[in-house]
Amino acid sequence: MSKERIRVYAWEFPIRLTHWINVLCILALSVTGFYIGNPFMHAVSSKQYIMGWMRFIHFVSAYTFMLSMVVRIYWAFVGNRYASWRVWFPFTSRRFRDLMDAVKFYLFISKKPPYAVGHTALAGFTYLLVFGVFIFMIVSGFALYSLNRDGALWTLLGGWLTGVMHLQTIRLFHHLGMYLILAFTIIHVYIGWYLDLKERNGLMGSIFSGYKFVTGKEWE
């Protein structure tokens, strides 16, 4: 069994770029969004513009996040095999088996850690769900934004949702969505760090450099 490690270019530049844009946007959106929902800082003078700036940052980050999502989804169709949309769907028998193996590993049933050069089957499927939450956050966010922004563009981006869900329900789910994303972030970083230690494959570094290290056997 070959112990030699091969350097594989897994994450292309647009994948890494959108990943880090998403990180910054989620951070900004969470802090400002939390403030908008529950204004924890209070102005001492009428000359301040705290809510105004919070909303401005929230909206600018929201546009950035949406465009980052557009680039990422585009890249799922034109990027390399690790970025492909196919890795999100565990509907082939092999991917489904891999997914169950990964679930067994995380439930302590199996001791064999999941391994893939790109996303594992479980990770890919998780990203499908997470992207669903992201898209809901974008649509519900624009639904709320459309209340004070008339125009066909904003109706298209989210305003239509107000005809389907009550505004207060949209607001509640937009609020809860943040917690789902934060919970995902914690799990995401923990598993990345854990598998990196376990596999010694440069997983954590790969989202900066794009390169992962695999043994010859795994590469085959």
Binding site: P39, S46, K47, G52, M54
Partner: peptide
């Protein structure tokens, strides 16, 4: 509304 934008709220 100006108090909303400024961040001045009744608690």
């Amino acid at each position: 509304r100006a108090h909303f934008d400024a961040g001045q709220f009744v608690r």
